[in-house]
Design a protein around this nucleic acid. Structure first.
Lengths: 207, 207, 207, 207
DNA sequence: TATGAATGAGATTTCATTCAT
DNA sequence: CATGAATGAAATCTCATTCAT
């Protein structure tokens, strides 16, 4: 009866269930019982594996960030072209893969954003991620423009990515990923042109 | 201690207190008791004046949207210049006034964004506002570029505004309004240039 | 402005409103605010005139009992015939007049019955009334039968009256007073015959 | 302290506790906390097992009605004599067994009567029970008298039973069951004689 | 390992009453 | 005389967590 090696399976199961519950009724109504029901287990087990609800929420956010990180890294490693444009394009693509731009992930993400303002544990994760996006963009932009311009470009593109994503999450029909990607890439080209790097702008959209 | 005609005063007081409480501990922990304490009244009065907590939250969101609407409208009415650039600039300015880009308003706004995904009453308000921003931008862009381009420009600028604002709300130090406005205006000019309307782009930032 | 001599008017108004409220939503939901609204006055005034909600409820029950008492007394005084049958018949009639067998009075009555089991003030009123009905019936029956038989007859008729009335109050369509009176009178005649007083039984129903 | 399969035990425990609480302080003051204290459990468990206070109250009323139904059915099945008199007598006996004519059951019953006027769920139960009593009596009376007479007899006896029971519940000393049964049986005989069925009336009381 | 029974803290809401005007 | 603003107590319900099995 007592199964061994269940831990990783259960953890994954519960994290998935957490996103499903948040997608269904929102973070505020995502009770441990509802999450447990989604996972097909009893409520008590959450404390067992995650120490409590907060532990589960933190693990869930961490999962989403890890997924995002992987999505970006995978695309960058797959690049044949080492140009800044290619790297930044891969970052954009990764952000709109976001493992899944599906409702569960998107709503969970936004819920955590709001929640992170008042929960140090989440805030830490949030900041690390924010800074990584900004640093990555900045680094690539600096390869083709002065430091100050690069910073502005990075801030602008980061805002654009988050803004597209945020508006997508709020739209009743869900995020239109192809359109969002198109707008982001267009904006990237505008930035490169604006800061005098026409030669780096793509002529054909990558999408 | 006036004892008559308190209703509008109390309502205003309680809406302010709601924002303060959300700023302080987040929407999830903003209990009626905490809100009431902020307002210096008893908890029961919230049900008296707003029918319940939900009524207060809805009224608070409505207030924020009204404030935003007024901030934009005021700036547009004050324009001496009727150009699209001027109108869109005023919309940007209005969005970064947001009556106050103060923490209480910003955090309340973000909290409602997340919450609106699962509360029809808030979602309605949210959608009306979203569509108004997009429609206004679109209308102005159409004055200087083809319909399809105008739509993309409007979508991009709306995303940029929300993105800047979102990242500002999440930054520990709060939103840096001047910088955000600068980035938005820069993007606006890029858009006008990109779509071949150089003559409408401002040469000197309005900020 | 300050009107004088309002007291009796207000008291009557509020007692009526209490019955109306109990009829509408039951004793448990008959809040002072609802009662006050029925009377077209503010809630605070109830404490003013009755010292509090309990005072109003007690006054209301007292009113109902007084009305009942008057209804019986009036019919007995109007009798031309001094026979036991006539007196008992008048008591039956009075109980099914009950000032009004209308829903407000009937529901209020039943509500007080239940409530009186745990409220000494109401219980006292209740007992006085119960005993008066029993004593009156007993006294008349004793004029035509032995003491022990009279007691049983009185108990039986009192139970019949209350039973008819109770079942009437619970019937969705309300109490069918004519039928109830008919059954009670029939029972009275059966009693008189059963205890060997045929000569006193009415031949034609009084209804 | 068994930890599994507690549900039926707890449900029964809580229904008993509900009657005890109503007996003690009345329905209006029978709070979940008081009921829980009577059962020796925490208040939260009531919502767990009954979905809420209303669910518990409904279950309690249902229990009382079931008990009554069983009490009547058992006596009728045990009859050796199939005469109408015997059946109706068994119905009377069952109604004054009422599992227990104890105070808790009696006061709970009366409380529900009053309450049922404004709570559809209780009203339904109440009506089913009322109609069953009437239908059963009617059916038996019809075996020995014309339909119209049977209806009146049934109405009269039903009223007598409820009336005796009601007055018993209100008496400070509680219901005197033997006397009540005696009066009901006497009335039954009067009815049978009145409607010309002397041969069916019992000569010796069954009590 | 996993369940579900149970608790107790906390949140919202209702309501009778008081009081200044 | 009358109002309605305001309070504070109480009641119900929800929920994360603990624990025996």
């Amino acid at each position: 009866m007592p199964k061994v090696g269940m831990e990783p399976i259960r953890r994954q199961q519960l994290i998935k269930a957490t996103m499903a519950a948040i997608d269904e009724v929102g973070l505020a109504e995502a009770t441990v019982m509802r999450i447990a029901r989604h996972a097909g287990v009893s409520a008590g087990i959450i404390s067992h594996y995650f120490g409590g609800k907060d532990g589960l929420l933190e693990a869930t956010m961490r999962q989403i960030l890890t997924d995002l990180s992987h999505a970006v890294a995978a695309r960058r490693h797959a690049l044949e072209d080492d140009s800044p444009r290619a790297h930044i394009g891969a970052i954009i693509e990764g952000n709109f893969d976001r493992t899944q731009v599906t409702d569960p992930a998107a709503k969970t993400w936004l819920a955590f954003w709001a929640s992170s303002m008042h929960k140090p544990a989440l805030q830490r994760l949030q900041n690390v991620n924010d800074r990584r996006l900004y640093a990555n963009l900045c680094h690539q932009f600096k390869r083709v423009m002065p430091r100050a311009d690069a910073r502005n470009a990075a801030r602008g593109l980061a805002a654009m990515i988050d803004g597209l994503w945020l508006r997508g999450a709020l739209t009743p029909d869900g995020l239109d990923a192809p359109e969002a990607r198109h707008l982001a890439h267009t904006y990237l080209d505008q930035l490169l042109i604006h800061y005098g790097c026409q030669q780096f702008a793509s002529t054909a959209e990558t999408l």
